[in-house]
Simulated assay, not measured.
Amino acid sequence: MTASEERDHDGGPPPDGDGPPSDATGLAPREQALLALERRSWPGPGAKERAVRERLGLSPTRYYQLLNALLDDPRALAHDPVTVNRLRRVREEKQRRR
Results as ranks from 00 to 15, higher is better:
56 L>V: 03
84 V>K: 01
73 D>Y: 02
72 D>Y: 04
85 N>K: 14
76 A>F: 08
62 R>M: 07
63 Y>F: 15
82 V>H: 08
60 P>N: 08
93 E>C: 03
60 P>W: 02
90 V>P: 01
90 V>Q: 10
63 Y>W: 08
70 L>F: 11
68 N>P: 00
78 A>S: 15
75 R>I: 13
58 L>H: 13
68 N>Q: 13
83 T>N: 07
64 Y>C: 01
64 Y>P: 00
62 R>N: 13
74 P>K: 12
69 A>W: 04
83 T>V: 14
90 V>Y: 09
78 A>C: 12
75 R>W: 13
85 N>Y: 05
82 V>N: 07
66 L>A: 01
80 D>A: 15
74 P>A: 13
87 L>Y: 03
87 L>C: 10
86 R>E: 09
57 G>Q: 02
77 L>A: 15
59 S>M: 05
85 N>C: 09
58 L>F: 11
60 P>H: 04
81 P>N: 11
85 N>V: 08
78 A>K: 12
85 N>Q: 13
87 L>V: 06
68 N>D: 15
73 D>F: 03
76 A>E: 10
76 A>I: 12
92 E>T: 06
56 L>Q: 05
88 R>M: 03
79 H>S: 10
91 R>E: 08
62 R>L: 09
92 E>M: 06
79 H>R: 14
71 L>K: 02
79 H>T: 09
61 T>Y: 05
92 E>G: 04
83 T>M: 08
78 A>M: 10
68 N>R: 14
63 Y>M: 03
61 T>R: 15
82 V>M: 08
90 V>S: 07
84 V>M: 04
82 V>C: 05
60 P>G: 02
93 E>I: 01
74 P>I: 07
66 L>S: 00
76 A>W: 07
83 T>L: 03
65 Q>C: 11
83 T>S: 12
66 L>C: 02
61 T>N: 12
82 V>S: 12
